[in-house]
Design a protein around this nucleic acid. Structure first.
Lengths: 207, 207
DNA sequence: CTATGTGAATTTATTCACAGCA
DNA sequence: TGCTGTGAATAAATTCACATAG
């Protein structure tokens, strides 16, 4: 079943595998079996094997998977083999948390620009990034920034999205709960914290 | 197909419907057709009808769905008909963003307690919540706090989760990228910002 | 005549079980 | 013998199409 389309749900799991494999690589481990990786990540071993099989033969029967080879390949599939620069829009509480978030690094992301509509924030430096006025968003075309994060409060999300698209961004991570409409070729992933919290009580046992 | 088990994917969509319906309710709208709601939310109308059909007959053919009735019912299913108090652990950048986040209110959540391991932060007041030492986590049993949010950096997530479970929490929203193991009856929903960002490049067109 | 509700068809994803390779 | 890779079986979710109710 080599080289066929990777199911969306498998793509969703690739960053999990990648994180785990990077961790193991730091421990100087050379290879790992699907079963050990399963125990480590909390994902079934047959699901891991199936997912890996979508993009080729990487395992050695009787031994397991070569960690470095797998890392390299998953990075390539996710297009993380090159680093990506990210523009942040909105430097409120959430935006500042994004700027300070250490977790982007392992995937090769660099939050390289920050914008805010509030003129009072312009010029301020947060985590080595100078906050610029939102009107300067157009200059992204010069830098090689291809991803945008929307962390503005309220209902400004759509106009920010429009500006990001005009500035040449290819993908958007949207923290606002508002629907964003963009050209089909632009991918939007929305994270709505409140919405995730909202389905937690459903699963709670009352006793 | 009345009153059968609601599929997980439908449960995931209920908070979206709820948000939209609450918005429409504020506009004093009385009822809405699945098609109008579909246009409004960007979800197919047949999927909306199917989802609603899982928990009963709420629509009137030729008219649409009664908004207030639907809101009340979805809230009940999600167990949001009663308000929930939430304990936050970790008051770093992310934790402070959570404390300031305005989006929890519409679902009836109240972040009522905050904890931090850093003694220097104890007693500090953020958004009207006094930060307590993490050792005081046990007192949750007295307050009616049933949800926890883990916003600690690094690898402390598991011990925080253990403490939250011991304090009687029923559900956890976990912002750390580390795997958390809890008793089966406790539900954990993990939000990993970096992981969501990591699958964005995959969908980017190169041209 | 409009819009719901739902069986049936289809698509997608997960799980199993085992042949075959090192 | 241990572990991969994958067809086949199962389960789950989505999409369709239309009978039916107001």
């Amino acid at each position: 079943m080599r080289y066929c389309k990777i199911p969306d749900e498998a793509v969703r799991r690739l960053p999990i595998y990648l994180r785990g494999l990077l961790f193991l690589s730091e421990q100087s481990k050379k290879s790992i079996s699907s079963q050990s990786l399963a125990d480590f990540l909390g994902i079934n071993s047959w699901l891991i094997r199936k997912d890996f099989s979508y993009f080729g033969d990487f395992g050695t029967p009787g031994v397991g998977y070569n960690i470095e080879k797998l890392i390299k390949h998953i990075k390539k599939i996710l297009k993380l083999h090159v680093g990506h620069k990210v523009a942040l829009v909105g430097t409120g509480n959430l935006g500042r948390a994004v700027l300070a978030y250490p977790g982007f690094r392992i995937y090769g992301f660099d939050v390289a620009a920050a914008f805010d509509s509030d003129p009072k924030k312009n010029g301020r430096k947060i985590n080595n990034v100078v906050v610029e006025n939102i009107s300067k968003l157009g200059r992204l075309k010069k830098g090689k920034i291809d991803l945008g994060i929307i962390a503005v409060p309220g209902d400004a999300a759509q106009e920010i999205a429009d500006a990001l698209v005009k500035a040449g961004i290819k993908g958007i991570l949207n923290f606002s709960p508002y629907r964003i409409i963009v050209p089909k070729k632009i991918k939007v992933i929305t994270i709505d914290i409140a919405m995730d919290l909202a389905r937690l009580p459903y699963y709670m046992r009352s006793n």
